[in-house]
Amino acid sequence: MTVVGEAHLMSTPGSAATQLIALAAGALLVTSVLMVWRRELSAQVRLLTVQGVSLAVLAVTIGLSGPASARAELLVVAALVLALRAWLLPWVVGRRLRAGVEAGDAAREDGARLNPTASLVVVALLATVAYLVSRPISEAVAAGSGAAVSGPAAFAVPVGVCMVLIGFLLLVGRRRAMSQLIGFLVLDNGIATVAFLTAAGVPFAVELGVSSDVLLVVLILAVLSRRIHAQVGSTTLDSMTELRD
């Protein structure tokens, strides 16, 4: 890692757009880390909302700083992101969570496979890995090669990669079905972040397709978790080990 490369990546720290992107990326990273730390499921849903808003801010900023021709489409995409990731998905998850608590399910993620301290250490390691592995992408984006044209957004790419890894960590470490769902949403937010940052905004058709996919997955998993609860009396996945061979 050379100092010259660092300076190049942070080339225009002054502009308002870059500041906003940095803020949104920071919020995304912090909310992800907090999700690893918190055990309260309702708190995690609130964090998911914050993450959705941050992602929408990121989309709006990239849309406004991009070329005028694509501005309208990117603003529609940002509105879609806001509606889906900041409102609809957290609402579906939250509703299912409240229904679960009323039916006698615990509101906390108990017995996760990693304790909070250990998970935070792992997160730190994952963040390092994310920064290491996204250097080539960042450099390509900053140089404006290929399809990537959003120079100022390049420095935030590692945040997206880091979110993907953190989402995966949540999937691996947690036992409750709802926690799995939240982990999946973090992972998907990470993918969306990387997409926005590297492709200078995502075409409307692509974002619509991805969004409807995610919505379907969440709805199916929400229904599934209710069925699991009805079948085995809790929503931990430990008792579901019969499907093998």
Binding site: R113, L169, L171, V172, L237, D238, M240, L243
Partner: peptide, 12 residues
């Protein structure tokens, strides 16, 4: 062993 977590850990 059938545990979802373990399978996810493999892919992770």
């Amino acid at each position: 062993n059938g545990s979802v977590n373990r399978y996810l850990a493999f892919s992770f």
